[in-house]
């Protein structure tokens, strides 16, 4: 999947170990080449306050790397020598975090003398989603803390049909939540806290709704929602509710546009925000309207995880794609539409 690809004979049996470290999660997953997921271990960095500090997150990843790796191998009942190839997220993501994961992956591959496969993080989200839900050729809404995009496969690649022009959906909800004084807790991410409060909202406040063609902009909505809170005429619950309704209606609209435009028959929802029930219900309604099938990725495979990297790595490896160690530098802004996906043809 790298710039320089070396072609190997096509393999169909083996195990791929994947390392994920694009942002706050450090994960290791192992999959069998036939798609069976043997393990999916993860340890998340939780900031004391504020958002993800890249350096601190990277420090966390370095500290937990060996224990997560051991846990994954033990759970899979495999020895390191049983692994066929090592996959890692090569981008996009936060530089220090990516480099930590890449270092772990390179060390493993070099030590075990097995091939390394650099994986595009967004492709991994789509592929694990298809594997877990059975979707074949969906319009995918990938919404997380760092990404908001609508993609679909067209001629060799996952093309981006719509995306955010500024901040990501998860980022929008997180920043609002922190502004409102909510705290990030283990087991209850900020987005989930907003979702719970939104359920109690009664008044619908009109906020900016910005859809530009197939793209959307969320920064104005975030500013307006924070200003509403400051003004104090409505309760936090009302603002959470209105913020969610506006933001989700916008992503739902661009997903619907992509669905109508591509005439595909499936919708796939993935990324950290996929856990939100309200967003799920909106997309489900759209799928019904267009006689399409709605799929949502189970939560532990929708948030960042090692299994998805392992699976995308296995798919690439089975096509003979590997990344030489000396060319395995991370790509912070590696767009999904820059990568060929030969296994889809």
């Amino acid at each position: 999947m790298g710039n320089a690809q070396k072609t190997l004979p096509i393999a169909d049996k083996g195990y791929c170990l994947g390392v994920e470290s694009t942002a706050d999660d450090f994960g290791v997953g192992i999959v069998k080449f036939d798609g069976e997921i043997l393990t999916n271990s993860v340890d998340s960095y939780i900031p004391v306050e504020g958002g993800i500090h890249p350096r601190e997150a990277a420090r966390h990843h370095a500290e937990v790397a060996d224990s997560v790796l051991c846990e994954a191998l033990t759970e899979a009942k495999l020895k390191p020598k049983d692994i066929t190839c090592i996959a890692f997220s090569m981008g996009p993501g936060l530089g220090p975090c990516l480099r930590t994961g890449a270092t772990v992956a390179r060390a493993l591959a070099t030590y075990l003398q097995i091939p390394l496969v650099g994986v595009n993080h967004s492709i991994a989200h789509i592929e694990i989603g298809k594997l877990k839900t059975g979707a074949v050729d969906p319009v995918t809404l990938y919404a997380s803390g760092g990404n908001t995009m609508v993609t679909a496969f067209e001629s060799k690649r996952y093309r981006v049909f719509g995306e955010t022009l500024d901040i990501a959906l998860g980022n929008c909800l997180d920043v609002f939540a922190r502004h409102a004084g909510l705290k990030n807790k283990r087991g209850l991410p900020l987005g989930a806290a907003v979702e719970q409060l939104a359920l109690k909202g009664k008044n619908f406040i009109s906020l900016p709704y910005v859809v530009k063609g197939m793209d959307l902009s969320l920064s104005g909505l975030l500013t307006a929602a924070m200003a509403q809170l400051q003004k104090g005429s409505y309760s936090l619950e009302d603002v959470c509710y209105s913020l969610q309704e506006h933001a989700f209606s916008m992503v739902a609209e661009i997903t619907e546009r992509a669905l109508a435009h591509t005439e595909k028959r499936e919708i796939l929802l993935t990324g950290g925000v996929a856990a939100n029930k309200r967003l799920q219900s909106m997309l489900e309604a759209i799928a019904q309207e267009h006689e399409a099938v709605f799929n949502v990725v189970p939560q532990r495979f929708a948030t960042d995880n090692g299994a998805m990297i392992a699976w995308a790595g296995a798919l690439a490896y089975m096509q003979g794609i590997v990344t030489p160690v000396e060319e395995s530098y991370v790509k912070l802004r590696w767009r999904v539409d820059r990568v060929d996906v030969p296994w889809m043809n």
Binding site: S206, E253, L283, A285
Partner: peptide, 9 residues
Amino acid sequence: PKKYRPESL
């Protein structure tokens, strides 16, 4: 009308 979004919006 789009049923997925609030009526007023």
